[in-house]
Amino acid sequence: MSLDDLEETMTANYTALGEETTVGLDPETRNELAMLSAAMGTDTDELLRRGIHALFQQAVRSGDLDFHLRTGYDVTYDEYLAGRTYEEMSGGDRYPERDEDRQYTM
């Protein structure tokens, strides 16, 4: 897979999510969400948004996101943000033409 494949998947997932999504909660998660809501005085929708942001940031900082992106798409999050791979940025995907006549000329 490639950067283009990741961008296509991201677009498809973003579109599929829409504005709202429903998630079934197990008793433990429901209990933890109720406790956080009571303690912080924040509604559950806001806590869920914050939870996703926190999980995302932790995955970025720990390198877990890059690991999964490299495994699935052979790119990193930085490459995704830049829209180019490191190889494309450094010119490593282009080799200079060989000049056989000047091959060993200094």
Rank of each mutant, 00 (worst) to 15 (best):
S2N: 01
S2P: 12
L3T: 04
L3E: 05
D4E: 12
D4Y: 05
D5W: 01
L6G: 00
L6N: 05
M10T: 14
M10V: 15
T11V: 12
T11H: 13
T11N: 08
A12Y: 08
N13P: 07
N13V: 12
N13H: 05
T15H: 03
T15P: 04
L17W: 11
L17I: 06
G18V: 05
E19M: 00
T21C: 15
T21Q: 09
T22L: 03
T22A: 09
V23N: 09
V23I: 15
D26W: 08
E28A: 05
E28T: 02
T29A: 04
T29Q: 09
E32Q: 08
L33D: 04
L33Y: 03
A34L: 02
A34R: 08
A39E: 13
A39H: 08
M40V: 09
M40H: 06
G41Q: 09
G41K: 13
T42R: 12
D45E: 14
D45A: 15
E46H: 02
E46V: 13
L48H: 03
L48F: 04
R49W: 11
R49H: 06
R49A: 04
R49V: 10
R49L: 10
G51Q: 08
H53Y: 13
A54E: 14
L55S: 15
L55T: 15
F56P: 00
F56N: 03
Q57Y: 05
Q58P: 14
A59M: 11
A59K: 15
V60E: 04
V60S: 06
R61L: 00
S62G: 01
G63M: 00
G63E: 02
G63V: 04
G63C: 00
D64S: 12
L65M: 10
L65F: 00
D66K: 00
F67S: 12
F67K: 13
F67T: 14
R70M: 03
T71E: 08
G72I: 14
G72S: 11
Y73V: 07
Y73I: 08
D74V: 14
D74E: 14
V75S: 11
V75H: 07
V75A: 02
V75E: 01
T76R: 07
Y77M: 04
D78L: 14
D78H: 13
D78I: 15
D78Q: 14
A82T: 03
A82I: 06
G83W: 05
R84K: 02
R84L: 05
R84T: 02
T85R: 03
T85G: 02
T85F: 09
Y86K: 07
E88P: 05
M89H: 03
S90C: 13
G92M: 05
G92P: 02
G92R: 05
D93P: 08
D93A: 00
R94G: 07
R94A: 04
P96N: 01
P96Y: 01
P96E: 03
E97N: 12
E97T: 08
R98Q: 03
D99G: 04
E100S: 11
D101F: 09
Q103G: 12
Q103C: 09
Y104P: 15
Y104C: 15
T105A: 10
T105N: 07
